[in-house]
Design a protein around this nucleic acid. Structure first.
Lengths: 221, 221
DNA sequence: TAGATTGTTAATCGATTAACAATC
DNA sequence: TAGATTGTTAATCGATTAACAATC
């Protein structure tokens, strides 16, 4: 059919939350208006890139003036689908999973953790923060009961694919994977990998090193 | 002067750890040789892209045969600077910091956490895992004593820039920032931001949604 | 009107991909 | 030799950036 607006480029989508974060910081200080150059500075990007990114959402600025902070924030939220709160289930409650379960930053930004699941009998039934750990077999029921669409997978590598399959079977359509392995998901399911040690490995390349062919250091992100 | 080999492109650097991770998994199963197509499949990338990426390191494959798993792993480790273990200090021991401090995945992959620091008198002196929390003011001494080059910042947003400045002052040259704010670092310091809630926000855009102009779902990562 | 700043254009740059000659 | 697979080329695609006309 080929109707409707063009896609927002992937590189832009990845930066919109960064702009939103800066806009929310400005909002807390009751700043009403912001220019592209100021917002770009706060987000750590080039001003031309920011304006180009925002142009994919439409024209929400005023020439000669700038952008209305609350209005632009609302447009970005709408574009990303952050209009409503998205409950999240954490699967796998080792050290990292427990930490993520307790991490206030998710709930603060619209992703309250509403359920925890594991398969370890020593963990099922215990309390972490204000929640009780359920068994993985209860996932379908939990997903339905809480209308959960998003899962955070923090299991060991060996269990991750099976757990992911089971989560999708239970109705999950959005997966943030912390297990350091590649997961396969069917079409219609969104997947994003986060490998914390891998981030340190990338950082190591750019860390100043002596006696190497190339000594360039670049500031990333 | 302009001598030496050309830079490895940033997109390639970000993928090398992914290839290394797959090679290490193959090594555990005592697989000696792997083709670009198989390794690409394991890493979740296109085979042409993988060969192009590896070509930036030199020619370490054998035509008609493939790559020697241990040899290629060693070349990637060398290129990234992963030859030796890099001790890490975690700064800020809220929920996330405590979790990262206990996360075995760092030590397992060459980044042992050797020290923890905070400013909260209620935390300083307490034990987390096998370590005692030190005061931020002791950071310079700790950095010298353990030869630490890398810091993980997991403080509240309001404290992150000051803490980062202090860490650099103490001798840190590589910073993984989990505080959801943009940090400024001087030239010669490598910085990489990780914002966990932001990852969920990106995921939300690609999550299947009804009643939107665009319903494309893409598989990322 | 004069000054400021957006939204868009167009040029450049970097990344991806398919195809295939080289070669084991 | 025949089959397999690398390393490289060249075409395409997408992202970045500076510049500036539009316009508040």
């Amino acid at each position: 059919m080929d109707v409707g607006e063009p896609l927002v480029p992937a590189a832009t989508v990845a930066r919109l939350p960064l702009y939103l974060r800066s806009l929310e910081q400005l909002g807390e200080d009751d700043v009403a208006t912001v220019s592209s150059s100021r917002l770009a500075e706060l987000a750590g990007v080039n001003a031309a890139k920011l304006r180009k990114d925002l142009s994919h959402l439409g024209s929400y600025g005023t020439r000669g003036v700038g952008y209305q902070v609350p209005n632009l924030a609302a447009q970005i939220r709408y574009e990303l689908g952050l209009d409503e709160v998205s409950p999240v289930v954490v699967i796998g409650l080792g050290n990292l999973g427990q930490a993520l379960a307790n991490h206030a930053g998710f709930g603060d930004r619209g992703f309250p953790i509403v359920a925890l699941v594991d398969v370890d009998p020593a963990k099922v039934g215990t309390r972490i923060g204000s929640m009780t750990v359920a068994h993985l077999d209860d996932l379908a029921r939990i997903v339905t009961a809480h209308d959960v669409q998003t899962a955070i997978i923090a299991t060991p590598v060996g269990a991750a694919q099976a757990v992911c399959d089971q989560a999708i079977e239970a109705g999950i359509v959005s997966v943030l994977n912390f297990a350091p392995t590649v997961l396969q998901v069917p079409e219609g399911v969104a997947l994003r990998p986060v490998d914390l040690a891998l981030e340190l490995q990338i950082l190591t390349y750019y860390r100043p090193r002596v006696g190497r062919r190339d000594e360039n250091v670049r500031l990333l992100g």
